[in-house]
Amino acid sequence: MAKIEPTVASPADASVPTTVTPAPTYGTPYVVGSATASPDAALLTEPRQLDQLSRIEEKAARIEEKFARYEAVLTRAEASLERSAHKVDAAAGTMDFAAIRGEMASLRDRVDATPRAATLFTTAVVTAVLTVILTILVLKFGVPGLFGGLLPR
């Protein structure tokens, strides 16, 4: 994109007569495009127009700088996103599916080796029955060396 810069001293087209008229005030009548302005008025307003043009150019330069900063930030963000995408792509490409299958098989073997509900229920019943029997024996005969039986024989 070509950048076109306005110039302050551009050559005027001699075929079209141009006059510079001062800005209107509320007390004086003003006709747009009137050629009644004096040459002194043209000299007085020209520096003001040049000053206004320079302010416009400064604002345009600030806007261009802001645009350049935003463009740099977006470029860095795009580069970061692209690096992340390459890393994800590389990680997905190097995944070892055979190792994952092996891990899943070993996990399945461990789950299969755990006791099922029937085994757990049987263990609970046997534990409860043995606990009751041992409690009755301790209450009847006591613990040798600590205390005697609490129930009559």
Score class of each variant (00 low, 15 high):
A68D: 10
R69Q: 11
P29C: 14
A23W: 08
S34W: 10
R110C: 00
E71I: 02
S15L: 03
R69S: 06
P17V: 04
Y30S: 11
E57F: 05
L44M: 14
M95Y: 06
M104L: 15
A61Y: 03
A60P: 00
A12P: 01
A68M: 10
L50I: 12
K87F: 14
T19W: 03
A105Y: 01
P47R: 03
A85C: 04
Y30M: 10
L53T: 10
S15E: 15
A85F: 03
E103M: 11
A35K: 14
E5I: 11
T114L: 15
T114M: 14
A14F: 09
V111A: 05
L74W: 11
E64S: 08
Y70K: 12
E58I: 02
T45A: 15
R76I: 05
E58C: 03
L81N: 12
S80T: 02
P39M: 06
T36K: 12
A91I: 12
A12Q: 11
I100S: 01
V8L: 12
P17D: 06
V16N: 04
F97G: 01
T21D: 09
R101I: 02
R62Y: 11
E57T: 07
E82S: 15
Q49H: 12
A41T: 01
R101F: 08
A68G: 05
A41W: 02
V8P: 00
R101A: 08
A2F: 09
S106W: 00
A98H: 08
D40R: 14
F97H: 02
E78P: 00
P47Y: 01
Y70A: 11
A41Q: 07
A77M: 13
A68W: 04
T21G: 04
D40S: 15
A37F: 01
P11D: 08
A61S: 09
R48E: 13
H86T: 15
A9R: 09
L43K: 13
F67L: 14
A68E: 09
T75C: 06
A105W: 00
T94Y: 00
G93W: 00
Y26M: 10
E58W: 07
P39R: 04
M1E: 02
A9W: 08
T28Y: 06
T18L: 13
A2Y: 10
A92E: 14
V32A: 14
D40F: 13
R101E: 09
T28I: 13
Y30L: 06
L74C: 04
I63D: 15
E5A: 11
V73R: 03
E71P: 01
I63M: 12
